[in-house]
Design a protein around this nucleic acid. Sequence first.
DNA 1: TATGAATGAGTGTTCATTCAT
DNA 2: AATGAATGAACACTCATTCAT
Lengths: 200, 200, 200, 200
Amino acid sequence: MNGEEKKPVIDKRQKIMEAAVVVFADKGFYNSTVADVARSADVADGTIYLYFKNKDDLLISIFEHSMEMFIGTVRGELENIDNPRDKIRKFITLHLQLVQKHQNLAQVIQIELRQSSKFMKEYANEKFFEYLSLIQGVIEEGKEQGLFRASADPVILKRAIFGAVDEMALEWVLMRKKRYSIEEAADQLSDMFIRGIALL
Amino acid sequence: MNGEEKKPVIDKRQKIMEAAVVVFADKGFYNSTVADVARSADVADGTIYLYFKNKDDLLISIFEHSMEMFIGTVRGELENIDNPRDKIRKFITLHLQLVQKHQNLAQVIQIELRQSSKFMKEYANEKFFEYLSLIQGVIEEGKEQGLFRASADPVILKRAIFGAVDEMALEWVLMRKKRYSIEEAADQLSDMFIRGIALL
Amino acid sequence: MNGEEKKPVIDKRQKIMEAAVVVFADKGFYNSTVADVARSADVADGTIYLYFKNKDDLLISIFEHSMEMFIGTVRGELENIDNPRDKIRKFITLHLQLVQKHQNLAQVIQIELRQSSKFMKEYANEKFFEYLSLIQGVIEEGKEQGLFRASADPVILKRAIFGAVDEMALEWVLMRKKRYSIEEAADQLSDMFIRGIALL
Amino acid sequence: MNGEEKKPVIDKRQKIMEAAVVVFADKGFYNSTVADVARSADVADGTIYLYFKNKDDLLISIFEHSMEMFIGTVRGELENIDNPRDKIRKFITLHLQLVQKHQNLAQVIQIELRQSSKFMKEYANEKFFEYLSLIQGVIEEGKEQGLFRASADPVILKRAIFGAVDEMALEWVLMRKKRYSIEEAADQLSDMFIRGIALL
DNA sequence: TATGAATGAGTGTTCATTCAT
DNA sequence: AATGAATGAACACTCATTCAT
């Protein structure tokens, strides 16, 4: 009768993806069974196939869905900042924070999907490139404003920055006893990269 | 009795590992079968179990064996250099060159081994930490000599540098049409990191 | 209230059976899903279970319904004929014509239903025996009238005649490029059988 | 050391086919599981896949193997006979006898394979046509010798004869309480067909 | 009546591992 | 040491059937 009834159940597709993230993060994609995911999502095995073509599709769907969220968040935050130096710092901080907040998700994306040649080779990874191009944009902006070295190659450095930040995030996620804070890491990385591509 | 017997067969263990590297790089660890490896190594399926405890052990053995080679090579080269700045440049260049030279191996180590949280979690990865500590040592050396910023945290930055270099290498290996040379990448990275941690 | 309501929907049970015939003829009973049939009949999966106990029951219903039609048609036509020789010719011609006219149906009955010993064993096939007995009746009639050999055993020969005609029909249905007409086949068969059981 | 050791175990492929015939005859192809066959053959499930590509291939292999035996036997027997009339009688008798002797096999071939549109459509059935052509040859021979009617079409009648004999065989195999003997059936059929295509 | 989302038992097939030779 | 046939546990996926709406 009223708005409350519109979505009496949370989107089941979403529910399955969330359960899968936990399972995959825990046991790894190849060592998880579809039955594991189903049990964790509290649905029948067959139900998963109503929402996903197959097990691979489930992983890829998680990836795409998450990357959209990541990209949206990062892009939104960067828009409010003018200085490319601050943008780089923000980007790094945000990436680490997001990873911290969504640890299981980060683990699945980084380890289970991005690391798999099967997926990297067979599946054209547009979302990932979109994310990378955010960094490239910032570097180019800085070069145009005369803040960054003309010799800095945005195509190469975007990947280097991503690699560094992502590796930090990976370590941080896998580390049981945290030896440093996300903030420290963000500062160290930001300082290094900003100095590294600064004009002087 | 004569020369023929010197190395009648190359070490069969080695032969299997080399074949496995090719197979795993091509199809991925989880999508390769022990029979695939056996066929490629031109031995019987069962023979593999004379040299390796199981399929996982084969992957780990490849990793340890390769890391030893990597570490030995890098450590040897760095010993001949005095200036920590040059050492960083050398480290970066060498890592990229080694990856270029051993593409299949690099792919397996990077992608297939790191792929699974199973391996990252269950298998204490000493060789990897040893490799990382090489970078850390160089940074500490540079700080002691007053060449690098005191504020630079070697524990954090070793991982960042590794992450950046490794990501570049990964991209380079997976890229079909190479858009830049290993040398360019090495220069870009070296310039950035050296400036990034330099005193001024 | 008005003409529109006379047959607002063709009997839905009939509609499902007709759709099923097409689907089963195309893909085979065991390789067709209930969902296939439902889609083809333009009803929901569950609706099928309002009209049929289960998938098997659907097949058997098709069979019974068709056999009733077959038997009715054949019996009606034979009634108008006096001479047992002509009756045999009519029977053969009619069977082949009916198969030609209802190819999908014929295929399902012949192939898919007989296919499984499950059906042949578990399901007492009264309609089929009724059909067979039509032939037997004609032979007996001919023997009584002294037209057919006394040595001809109607119990055995009814089955032989049916087998021959049905095999011809099966071939004809499965043949893509028709190499002979139904009429030719009917003549050849009729000539053979009539001579075969004739007195002289 | 001697000939006894040549085949210490009966060909395992053969063993599996024989077990499968029993299982398929009992429960039907689609209602039998590979595990059923394995258990019956006293091998592991996986073993079946060392000898057959998949479950379908097992059925087809049974068919081809049996048809070769059938064809060989029939062809051999017919060679010793001169008169085409006697050849037809022999063919009919032999077919019925073979079916009687290999009841399970006959059931599988007739019902499970030949009756399945899936197999009839997808699998070009050379052995079956070879068998049919044996009959055709006999009819043509009889026509050349002036024993059979010129108006008899061998292409059509070979199928009719086969259909009649096969239907008799099917009935006989499925009949629990035998109401007539194989010999009676063979005589009835032979008499009918020989008279049916005879010159006078 | 009709729907179609959900179920979960069932199965073909794969493949790491063993072991008799 | 080496083989490769055999094993059988494991798993992704399908689909007949049900039932809340």
